[in-house]
């Protein structure tokens, strides 16, 4: 358990507040797995004792025999239980999934699009892809090669400014991506490996400290790229008609239609100011060079 002087000392009692991008997240948990997870992967974030916040996430153990036999993690998010209990060993990941649920469903100030975002020179590159297309792998590789990690999960568009708000958090990597990224950063910290409910191996990669420290610096959207990892395929970066990019972005948005016309116009305006591409690749080093060239142009 944490020492009394640790920022996480109150995790199991009144909870702690974690500043994650624009959000103050209250976290409570009596599970060691969550404490270890926060200690290792959120060590660079501002953590303080306190109650309240934009979101309230509790990851708590079951009572009775379930506390000891096949222990479970129960996720209580803003007073609701949107998920079934998870195996206790997935408690840390459960925190991330709960936070995804919060941002996707309860952050109406922004238009939230499922995408990875990295930034360079004040310009943001949005990676929008279906699950398994290599989005997070590419995002992690870019974050380890000079790009600032904005988010692995969300492009948060401010409808009032059209700019992107960062939400730096651990990057979720699955299956072969785990070894690929492990091989690229000897100093990179990873959380515990688990197997999700779909049978995929996963780990979370600690976000680079500079991304965390610059977690309130927004950026101008500059590129929308639809990446797809294809075995043996040479790198191809092809222009994508903006109308097609807009259709993809709205399809991947969690809440644009809740904001009505304002939400749609926000995404349409973002696409208007971006150069849009499809990207197919199999050689990560090659695609990093291509995107470096894109950013330099």
């Amino acid at each position: 358990m944490p020492s009394p002087s640790s920022p996480l000392a109150c995790l199991a009692t009144s909870g702690v507040q974690v500043a994650i991008g624009p959000f103050l997240v209250r976290v409570r948990s009596d599970l060691n797995g969550v404490h270890e997870y926060l200690h290792h992967l959120y060590g660079d974030f501002q953590v303080a004792a306190g109650e309240g916040g934009h979101f309230d996430i509790a990851v708590v153990s079951s009572r009775g025999v379930r506390r000891w036999v096949r222990p479970q993690a129960n996720l209580v998010v803003n007073g609701e239980r949107p998920f079934l209990p998870l195996p206790g060993k997935l408690a840390g990941a459960g925190f991330e999934w709960s936070l995804n649920w919060c941002v996707g469903n309860q952050a109406p100030r922004w238009v939230a699009v499922h995408a990875a975002v990295v930034e360079r020179g004040g310009r943001a590159l949005i990676l929008s892809a279906e699950s398994g297309a290599g989005k997070s792998t590419l995002c992690a590789a870019l974050a380890l090669n000079g790009w600032r990690l904005f988010s692995d999960e969300f492009a948060l568009i401010d409808p009032d400014t059209g700019r992107l708000t960062p939400l730096p958090r651990p990057v979720s990597l699955k299956n072969a991506s785990i070894e690929i990224i492990r091989g690229r950063g000897a100093d990179v910290v990873f959380g515990p490996q688990g197997v999700d409910i779909e049978g995929a191996r996963f780990v979370h990669m600690k976000p680079p400290v500079q991304s965390v420290r610059r977690g309130l610096e927004d950026a101008r959207p500059a590129w929308v790229i639809l990446p797809r990892w294809v075995t043996g395929r040479p790198t191809t970066l092809e222009p994508l008609p903006k109308a097609h990019a807009l259709l993809r972005m709205t399809d991947q948005s969690f809440n644009y239609n809740h904001l009505g016309t304002k939400g749609f116009a926000c995404v349409a305006d973002l696409v208007r100011q971006c150069d849009c591409y499809t990207l197919e690749y199999s050689d990560l080093d090659d695609v990093l060079i291509r995107l470096e060239s894109l950013a330099s142009s």
């Binding site: 222009p239 008609p241 903006k242 109308a243 097609h244 807009l246 259709l247 709205t250 399809d251 239609n257 809740h258 009505g260 016309t261 749609f264 116009a265 349409a268 696409v271 208007r272």
Partner: peptide, 21 residues
């Protein structure tokens, strides 16, 4: 809400009542 970009002839239309695009 109809949206058109100069790089193609296609249009994107948003239907506010259904939220469909």
């Amino acid at each position: 809400v109809w949206t058109h970009y100069e790089d193609s002839e296609d249009w994107v239309v948003f239907h506010p009542q259904s939220g469909d695009v």
